[in-house]
Design a protein around this nucleic acid. Sequence first.
DNA 1: CTACGGATGTCCT
DNA 2: GGACATCCGTAGG
Length: 209
Amino acid sequence: MTTMAEFFSGRSTETISRELLGKLLSYESPKGLVSGYIVEAEAYLGVADSAAHAYEGRRTKANDALYSAPGNIYIYTSRGYYAFDIAVQEKGEPQGILVRGIEPKDGLDIMMANRPKSGSELTNGPGKLMQAFGVNDLHWNNTMLDQSPFKIDLQDSREPLRIATSARIGVSKRGGQTDAPYRYFVAGNPYVSGMRKRDMDLETHGWVK
DNA sequence: CTACGGATGTCCT
DNA sequence: GGACATCCGTAGG
């Protein structure tokens, strides 16, 4: 059995990001269980990555969670929205993976009560999925997955038919080598942020099974 | 359906 | 005060 610490270290953050696609992210929220399969994730490569919060070793109270052990939760805010990251690589090596989209599994009714949108608009973005989960504070920031109500299930997973890549969202206009293809997503899945209608596969959602 | 611009709450990324 | 790993409403095809 693979532990969280093992899964989130020991190989490149790009590889871990790819392997994260199709895994079930769940949250035992105060209102009940909510969960969904991860369909989109971005890799942030730490001190050498100009798009990363820990670029050049920047360290503040807000991004401190990135410097902790693999499998640590990093929740941060941007323009009043919350986003869910996981710290990867060994303690002191501040790399991370941002979860940007999930395909809902459990607790659809709870999610729709938290965020009254229909279809893929419910969870097709980092701020959107945290809204749907009902997360609106930093309570679980800097907590290990194992010790939190959040869980990445390595058993309950789906297999992407094809993994597509692109530049990361929202970082391209700031100079540096920010156009590297560190965004990974399940090709054709409707819950990928910005997925155009004509690119969606409404039959299989991009899964093998 | 898509592209664009403005709103918005933390934190200084 | 400025910056932002975003979201949504509106306008134009």
